[in-house]
Nucleic acid binder design. Structure first.
Lengths: 213, 213
DNA sequence: TTTGCACTACCAGTTTCCCGGTATTTTTCC
DNA sequence: GGAAAAATACCGGGAAACTGGTAGTGCAAA
């Protein structure tokens, strides 16, 4: 917890110097925070962290020397109290969610406004999970972001999709619904076709990612 | 878009009268919105909507006559301009995400504070996707909410999990990684054991839901 | 240096899934 | 009431997945 009137120590990790400079100009003018350091590599930041309290780090994912996902994990491991706010051009739902799972407190795309960035910084420091509006949109409706159409499923298809995702086999589903195994097979086939995938692993992945399950 | 000084028309749909009453007390005192109607059934609300502009509806999921998921879809179908803000005791990630996919603009649990509710109402009306803090927490880190431990995966296991979720078969993965099919089979076996599931469908569902993919 | 973990590989048998479609009945909606 | 959509069922063959384990090598950490 920050003491009253103590400056927020903020670090920036991004492989593009112009991004760092822009962020410095924006954030450097705020009298409640101190841009304690800026880095173009993950390794340099990890060294910095050893001797410098960092309340929050604005972290890009694409770095020359490290995988941002692993770096995020490593930051949280070494300094659990440091908030990681991802600032990235990667807008894939999968990357967003994995970064959150690896300990990031928040995620914004680089096109977020200055106000949004500042707001997210404050929310993260307040202990909240924080997303920019565009990230919330991606999380809520990934298909809209990917310009894909979510397949329209019939009542029975939805039911069977859920049962498949619970790990039930075709014989088990047939038993539960009192239908022929061949009927279940046809529904599975139809599901694979509607989602344009070849097997159940890809089907379930897309269905969960598109918030159908 | 609301005209300046025009009251926000808000409806409440919940099967518990005490919840409705509490919300009315809270919201009824706000001079910028009008509690246009309260309903304990989905059907009644749909009838109401026909003749009454509703800018935002606070919607429970468990209703006596309808499935809240389908009701949400139906509301958005009949009146796309109406914001649906889910107010529910259901905290399962799966339900949250399905409601969002069905068109809800936001989601809060019933234990959210008055301030959070009001804030979410404003964000939803501003065209944003909005979550209470607890919902963001659940979305970001479902395992923490479910008091489950996310399995620790080795580097190879992660790689193979991703490839499986992309729909690749064991022979295909073996070819891609230059490993024996039997090696891939062992990794798959280990993944199933770590996640305590019986097949790949359940494996991928849990992995995506826990934000590992 | 030793121990433990990760990774690789083995393999036969059984079960399940996917593929190539086609066809009939029931339900829903206009 | 009719058309269209949804649901049900068919079925053999081949491929893939799952199951029951066991075992050896290399690397990392203590």
């Amino acid at each position: 917890m920050l003491e009253n009137n103590e400056l927020i120590q903020l670090a920036i990790v991004d492989d593009h110097p112009v991004v760092i400079e822009g962020l410095q100009r924006l954030l450097g003018s705020k009298d409640y925070l101190n841009v304690a350091g800026t880095f173009t590599s993950g390794a340099d930041f990890l060294v910095f962290m050893k001797d410098n309290r960092t309340d929050i780090v604005l972290l890009d994912i694409s770095l020359p020397d490290t995988n941002g996902m692993e770096l995020c994990k490593e930051i949280k491991k070494r300094s659990p109290g440091t908030c990681v706010l991802v600032l990235s051009n990667h807008s894939e739902r999968s990357i967003i969610m994995q970064m959150l799972q690896n300990g990031a407190s928040g995620y914004l795309l680089k096109n977020a406004s200055a106000d949004e960035l500042l707001n997210c910084i404050h929310e993260a420091l307040a202990g909240q999970i924080t997303f920019s509006n565009e990230i919330k949109q991606i999380i809520a409706r990934p298909s809209a972001h990917e310009l894909k159409e979510v397949p329209q499923l019939t009542r029975r298809e939805k039911e069977i999709l859920h049962l498949i995702s619970d790990g039930m086999t075709t014989p088990q589903i047939a038993g539960k619904l009192n239908l022929s195994q061949l009927t279940i097979e046809t529904h599975r086939r139809n599901l694979l076709q509607k989602f344009d995938v070849n097997n159940v692993a890809a089907l379930i992945k897309v269905a969960v990612q598109q918030n159908l399950i």
